[in-house]
Computed example of a mutant assay.
Amino acid sequence: MRGFVVILMAALAGCNTPGPEFRGTDPVRAQVGRSVFDVRVDGTRAQAIRVNSEWAPRLEAVAPRGAAAIAQVSGCRVVRVWGDQAVMVAEIDCGEGAALLPRGHAYDCELDHIHGGYAELICTPRH
């Protein structure tokens, strides 16, 4: 039984393992709605791994929250998102010569006007 517990713990430890292109990038935890993500940003790409449990989530429901978490952490506009309801990768646009926001900033973000697979993300700094 002890061996089973060790194997189970090792398997669960891999649930938040980033893809190869994001290894070595520290995650930033972000919550949007009922979803919690570990977000890693590397240049013009970002990855959001959903770390909370949700009952039967669909990509269509989780993707806008993943994009919002990526925008919140990166400070950049999310151009495109692909993946599944657990791991999403996004192309981000930080503008010409724009720098990513320093880590440690916190924002409250809300999704607005979801239509045709797109949504506006309205973020305000937390005080």
Rank of each mutant, 00 (worst) to 15 (best):
A61N: 14
G14M: 14
R45L: 12
G97A: 03
F22E: 04
V79Y: 01
A11Q: 10
G104E: 09
R23Y: 11
R2E: 12
I7D: 11
Q72Y: 05
E120N: 06
E54R: 04
R34P: 06
A106H: 15
V6W: 11
G97H: 06
L121Q: 02
R29N: 07
A61V: 11
A68G: 04
E120I: 07
A13K: 12
C109V: 06
L8E: 13
Q85A: 11
A30R: 07
A98D: 09
I92L: 01
N16M: 14
G117V: 06
Q72D: 05
E60A: 14
I70F: 05
T44M: 11
E120D: 15
V51Y: 00
H127T: 12
R2A: 10
P20H: 12
R65A: 15
A68I: 05
I92M: 02
V81I: 02
H115I: 13
L101K: 11
S53N: 14
R103L: 08
D112P: 04
N52H: 02
Y107V: 06
V36G: 04
G19D: 15
A63E: 04
V62L: 05
P57W: 03
V41E: 02
A61F: 11
S53T: 15
A67Y: 00
W82H: 14
N16K: 13
G33M: 01
F37Y: 12
P20Q: 14
S35A: 12
E120T: 09
Y107M: 15
N16R: 14
R50V: 00
L121C: 09
D93S: 07
E54G: 05
A67E: 02
G75N: 00
H115A: 15
C15R: 15
P27Q: 09
I92D: 03
G3P: 02
L111K: 02
G116Q: 09
L121S: 00
S74C: 00
R50D: 01
A11D: 07
R65Q: 15
D84L: 07
E110R: 13
Q85W: 05
G14D: 10
G83I: 01
V32K: 03
G83V: 05
A119V: 12
G66M: 10
M9Y: 12
A98W: 05
G75K: 05
H105K: 13
A69E: 05
Y118F: 12
I49G: 01
S74M: 04
V6K: 13
A86Q: 07
A11L: 14
D93N: 07
R40G: 06
A46D: 02
C15Y: 09
V6G: 02
P20L: 13
R80N: 12
C76M: 08
I70D: 01
P27A: 08
I70E: 01
I7N: 08
G116L: 09
T124D: 12
R29V: 10
V79Q: 10
H115E: 14
A67R: 00
A69W: 01
D38F: 01
A106R: 15
P27M: 02
R29D: 08
P64A: 03
M88H: 01
A86D: 12
I122C: 03
C15Q: 14
P18L: 00
A30D: 06
E21S: 10
V62T: 03
E91P: 04
Q47A: 03
R23N: 08
I122E: 10
C123K: 10
R77D: 12
R65L: 15
Y118K: 15
N16F: 14
V87A: 08
A11Y: 09
A90P: 04
R77P: 04
G3Q: 11
M88D: 02
V62C: 01
A71T: 00
A86W: 03
